[in-house]
Design a protein around this nucleic acid. Structure first.
Length: 189
DNA sequence: CAATAGATCATCT
DNA sequence: GATGATCTATTGC
């Protein structure tokens, strides 16, 4: 299983395409490794559900920056969500990582999520995977093509990709921008 | 199993 | 001052 980070060019594409392509890839943070099984695409100015919808602000600055970087923000005052910036620099767009399947460093993940017994529930949600992987706002703006936090190519077995509406949003809810590995028990509900 | 409550704060109006 | 890309625990059937 190769573990070389995906290069920048991978992310310089339409956001929805990147969201699909990220399925099956490996998210790496130090010793922890996990397979991406669920993503959502958030477009720029054309998508009312996206943070970038309102244009450039101090917070959304990263979204308009170079692709392949992390956008991490606090949601509901408690949890943090990991996104990966897509599209060419200057154009907003990002992919929310919604669920991952623990692959390596599972003991360290369990330690960060006390009380969770079932492996499938360790990281099957946006807030859960950041906890399990030890990702925080410190990583906001981090370059994922190099460094301790990165996305690597997996061995890409074939799988079916499911498509649906996005979860937990109230604006622009009908867009089919959620992608997941069909049948995976690690997908959120 | 389904529905609901509560936790808690950075960001923007 | 309101809002939100969530999660867990608890209640009720």
């Amino acid at each position: 299983m190769s573990c070389r980070p995906l290069e920048r060019a991978f992310y310089i594409r339409p956001t929805a395409e990147v969201a699909r392509a990220l399925l099956g890839k490996i998210l790496v943070h130090g010793a922890a490794q996990a397979r991406i099984v669920e993503t959502e695409a958030y477009l720029g100015l054309a998508d009312a559900a996206a943070h970038a919808y309102g244009g450039r602000t101090p917070r959304t600055e990263v979204l308009f920056g170079p692709p392949g970087h992390a956008y991490v923000y606090l949601i509901y005052g408690i949890y943090e969500c990991l996104n990966i910036v897509a599209e060419p620099e200057g154009q907003a767009g990002c992919v929310l990582i919604r669920a991952v399947e623990p692959v390596k460093g599972i003991e360290s993940m369990r330690r960060r999520r006390p009380g969770i017994d079932r492996l499938e529930r360790l990281a099957n949600g946006p807030g859960k995977l950041t906890l399990a992987m030890g990702i925080t706002r410190r990583h906001n703006g981090a370059d994922l093509t190099r460094g301790p936090l990165a996305v690597c190519g997996g061995c890409d077995p074939t799988f079916e990709i499911g498509v649906s509406r996005r979860i937990g949003i109230t604006k622009n809810p009908d867009a089919l921008l959620r992608f997941y590995i069909a049948g995976s028990p690690f997908v959120s509900r």
